[in-house]
Simulated assay, not measured.
Amino acid sequence: MFTGIVTDIGEIVALKPVAQGQLHRLRIACRYDRATIADGASIACNGVCLTVVAAGVESGNTWFDVDTAAETLAMTTARHWTVGTRLNLERALKIGDELGGHIVAGHADGIATILSRDDLPDMARFELNTARELARFIAPKGSITLDGVSLTVNAVRDTAFSVLIIPHTLNVTTLSSWRAGTEINIEVDLMARYAARLTEMK
């Protein structure tokens, strides 16, 4: 589990397809302490929970390897990642950690596309669109995870919704690079999903 609070920005430094293109192995450079990264650890990369299969240090920089399977490549923006792509990173939540965002599974539900960006004094407002089956779980003032970042929904219009990004978030994540047309990994709020399921069962 995660909280949607980004703790580092990583960069893909190597990528190679394996298993006849159904699996991609990525090497991601980061600022985490190598001693704290164990094989099998979970790290959210742009909101996608991936498992560390190797880690090390090269030229003083920490790196870790992860595999992206066919389902991940089909359902998320991972299919567009290349060497040089910057990723929002978050380590898995530990008992006793502060829950600064909201409960995030790291299982991206799909993709949202940025419709527009409005740069305001010290902030940015983004309007995004997503699939109708996901839009039903999005509500004003509700929580949403976009590229691994816990955000609050500002407004909703049919399948479109907007978020306001404060200066701190723009500075410590990759969100400052978002533009109209950018595809974003989206994870809807778990509580909204469970509430909808309970309603369906009545």
Score class of each variant (00 low, 15 high):
Thr85Cys: 10
Thr72Met: 08
Val48Arg: 01
Ile9Leu: 08
Cys45Asp: 13
Gly100Leu: 11
Ala124Glu: 03
Ser42Glu: 06
Pro167Ile: 02
Thr182Phe: 04
Ser116Met: 09
Gly4Thr: 02
Thr174Gly: 09
Gly181Asp: 06
Ile184Arg: 01
Arg31Ala: 13
Arg79Thr: 07
Ala192Tyr: 03
Pro17Cys: 07
Thr72Tyr: 06
His168Lys: 11
Gly84Arg: 05
Thr77Lys: 05
Ala124Asn: 04
Ser177Thr: 12
Leu151Asp: 01
Gly148Asp: 03
Ile114Trp: 02
Asp147Phe: 10
Ala14Gln: 11
Asp109Pro: 03
Thr159Gly: 07
Glu11Phe: 05
Thr62Asp: 00
His24Tyr: 13
Lys94Glu: 13
Glu187Asn: 03
Met123Pro: 06
Asp118Arg: 15
Asp97Cys: 12
Ala105Ser: 14
Asp97Gln: 06
Asp158Lys: 13
Asn61Cys: 13
Leu120Ile: 14
Leu175His: 04
Asp8Tyr: 08
Ile111His: 00
Pro121Trp: 06
Glu127His: 04
Ser177Leu: 06
Ile138Phe: 04
Asp97Asn: 11
Gly10Cys: 08
Tyr32Lys: 11
Arg117Asn: 08
Val156Glu: 08
Thr82Ala: 14
Ala54Ser: 15
Leu99Pro: 07
Pro121Tyr: 04
Ala44Lys: 00
Met201Ser: 06
Glu71Phe: 10
Met201Ala: 08
